[in-house]
Design a protein around this nucleic acid. Structure first.
Lengths: 215, 215
DNA sequence: CGATATTTGTCAACGGTGTTGACATCGTGC
DNA sequence: GCACGATGTCAACACCGTTGACAAATATCG
């Protein structure tokens, strides 16, 4: 019987990443966690990158389940919030999104769901595609920027915000008047709040593209 | 006289990245390009990460110069397009944006410019901060997603699009009806076009937050 | 100028990485 | 039972970022 399977490897890899962080994750550590020779992994994945993609897809499982059906906006909003959360929890997802189109199961499900919602909302094919790309870009960008912060404890995170704001406040007020004046207002709310604001404004703008003259 | 300076090192590093790509960039290759021992670099930068940040800031030079003054939307639009272009040309910028707030000169200049435009447009401090974060998130996300494609030749890139669309078209039409139906419409226009659409819709949404009852 | 102190470049080395090829072992189909 | 392919093991390759000890060059000061 095969002791190792792709599923077991991915599960163990997620556990290892949870312990040591995605930066320090290595094939050798994964081998140790599996009580197997590190190179045995290469019997199931062609490369570490392929393994990372599988990890990414795993962490997207369930993301498109039980979404709100009240409106296309509510559905896409919730979906993008979940995608962002999955990315924050699992930075390995980054390697899945880099340039390559969705090829794995859960990715395809996300695309299908979003395209379906946009079409049902009344967007024509090209605009729906553009809107889809826009939502994904914003979601990935937010996750990328917040990823370092998300891996910190809440208190440490707050401490960072305090420091950053005082850094801005300490700038040369002549060269950077607005930064200084707004120092206290920067990084408002939580990172989740800021993303909610951003996606809501994007959805506002997208809604404006809909049926300019029908009702 | 000091043969090596931070400026020379950064310049050489950008050249090396241009040749071998940012993935393959290493301190040893940089040392070769400088005709110096690789470890000499550590006399000028504490770590490779610090060097990457300096590279990032260098590639942002001029990004905030001569921006359109016709409207806040035109200004922010152009600025974000330039930031995205800089990120695509120089993937090392990614390490600059990950979680850390702007600390280098050009980054601070970008923040200052954008905050100033938003305040002048009439946004209150908190909303201006939220809008700033939203624009940056979308810009970084688009650059992240497009970075792999941007490093390819135009013909190769087109070839990729063709393949991806046919991948979608070949999906199971029962499980992924919208993906199949819209296969030909996916990845519309150029990546630049798609970003322009996205930033315009986000700016639409942000404009909707302005003075709901004044004029 | 000379002597001294600090900065800068060189070298060897450490501990780590992803990956490959040769070899042994195991489970399964004939 | 045997052969064969899939899987696990081991040693090794070619890299990587980084550090410490030492030499050369430069700056500082009497």
């Amino acid at each position: 019987m095969a002791r190792l399977t792709p599923e077991r490897i991915v599960t163990a890899a997620i556990a290892v990443i949870g312990e040591v962080g995605s930066e320090q994750f290595s094939v050798r550590k994964l081998g140790d966690a599996l009580d197997a020779d590190p190179t045995a992994i290469y019997r199931h994945f062609r490369s570490k990158d392929e393994l990372l993609r599988a990890i990414g897809d795993r962490s997207l499982s369930g993301v498109a389940d039980d979404l709100p059906t009240s409106s296309w906006r509510a559905c896409i909003r919730e979906l993008s919030i979940r995608i962002r959360a999955a990315n924050l929890a699992q930075p390995a997802l980054a390697s899945l999104v880099r340039g390559a189109p969705p090829r794995h199961r859960n990715e395809l499900l996300i695309t299908e769901t979003m395209l379906g919602q946009l079409r049902a909302a009344g967007f024509d094919a090209v605009t729906a595609a553009e809107a889809y790309h826009a939502v994904i870009e914003l979601t990935i960008g937010s996750a990328t920027i917040d990823s370092t912060l998300a891996s910190m404890a809440a208190s440490e995170r707050d401490q960072n915000y305090v420091e950053w704001r005082s850094d801005y406040a300490a700038l040369d007020a002549e060269a950077f008047p607005h930064s200084v004046a707004m120092a206290a207002s920067l990084y408002p709310g939580t990172a989740d709040d800021r993303f909610a604001f951003a996606i809501d404004r994007l959805l506002d703008g997208l809604a404006g593209q809909l049926v300019p003259r029908s009702p």
